[in-house]
Design a protein around this nucleic acid. Sequence first.
DNA 1: TCACTTCATATAGCGTTGCTATAGGTGCTA
DNA 2: TAGCACCTATAGCAACGCTATATGAAGTGA
Lengths: 240, 240
Amino acid sequence: MSFDDQLPPKTRLLRAAAELLANSDGSPVSTRQITKLAGVTAPTLYHHFGDKEGLFDAVVSAGFEEYVAGERDFAPSGEPLEDVRRMWDNHVKFGLTQPHLYLVMFGNIRPESRPSIVADAEALLEEMLNKAAIAGQINVPPREAARSILAANVGVTLMLIAEPLEDRSIELSTMTRDSMIFAVSTDTARGAATGDSGKSSVVVAAIALNAALQASHSDQLSSSELKLFLEWLHRISSSS
Amino acid sequence: MSFDDQLPPKTRLLRAAAELLANSDGSPVSTRQITKLAGVTAPTLYHHFGDKEGLFDAVVSAGFEEYVAGERDFAPSGEPLEDVRRMWDNHVKFGLTQPHLYLVMFGNIRPESRPSIVADAEALLEEMLNKAAIAGQINVPPREAARSILAANVGVTLMLIAEPLEDRSIELSTMTRDSMIFAVSTDTARGAATGDSGKSSVVVAAIALNAALQASHSDQLSSSELKLFLEWLHRISSSS
DNA sequence: TCACTTCATATAGCGTTGCTATAGGTGCTA
DNA sequence: TAGCACCTATAGCAACGCTATATGAAGTGA
């Protein structure tokens, strides 16, 4: 019943919590279950993690590293937008294979614990979108695009998790994914030879330049000059 | 301290629960708080609602009717896609003004309580998108479009709720909204005179016809004929 | 008018939850 | 050997959701 006695109690608590969290279909997991499975008593938990939430946070950071590893572990295809698609799919896959961990990570609403993880996930996406921006493939500043795409990605994943398994169609994901990417793409990135549809090319150019500058940490301008320059670019690329 | 004694205990319980739920910043609300504020004792709660969740469900249905009322209460503008935009904005507004109610309604993950509400919200959206489909303005079957848009809408709203109030920018919402609508729109609906970008016009026509048929309950075909006919149409309009 | 059923509320308490005040054991350094 | 962190256990508190049981009120038929 109990866990490997070789391991230190802290590790056993982490593993027990992760295991129970993974096998409890959404129902809450009690500290008593955890400590019993880990083979320790309550104060040990609170000594190491301070809190039930502290323990869960620790489990989550482990899970998050797994998530990040998944997001990073494919070689860039040279097609940034294609990589964004893969990040999206990977996000959904992570949510569906580890729904409970996902819910603790993204379904959690408390304005303290959530943002750090969301911000990290956003940063990953933004990094990739930055490459797309440099290539002149997107329509919107990378940060805004990342926030927007991530929001949709989380929404879709939550909806799929909440859906009974039998009629859980992955189409919802691919369609929403492509809609979001399509909407932030420039026409050239879409492969169509049609004219501009909305954004003028100067805006796209400003976005691309902005991204390129931030990526290369150019030394051609002083830092204060650069700051102002970037602000102007941002203003241009945010204008409708 | 207590509630209006004129009202029956059931109503007082509902109001007390709603009030506490609205003013508890995400922290859980106990049955004891509720019964104390309502001026009744525990068994009364369980007599009327069976369950804590039963009481919350009752509160939610009241809140949901408010939500639906908001979604219906503007006159159709004649521009279905514009109405979809308004439904989106109304959804976000509802979530931000009643975050706790919203979280119980849409942030809840249990695969039993959630779908009914989500399905209702989906139906509202689908109804509107059906009009757009009849007008040949959308690219995708209305049901799929509704699911997709709603998922993004929920994701954005949750993300805005989770965000600290000071840097809660509504841009995220409008941008994601327009991205989703843009992606499901046909070119004519976009106002651009460019050529087809992806979908062939026969697909759009099939989608429009399908929507029109389902809306009018045409009697020109027998029900079994109609069923098969609709299936073919669906197959056409789902083809990439 | 009186017994009888039905609905609604209260008293009191069960089992479980997250958490902790306190104390004891263990291994290290002096 | 003494002292000092560090870690763990015993025991128990307050709050939680919920319920077995009892009491009151209101309507119904004889």
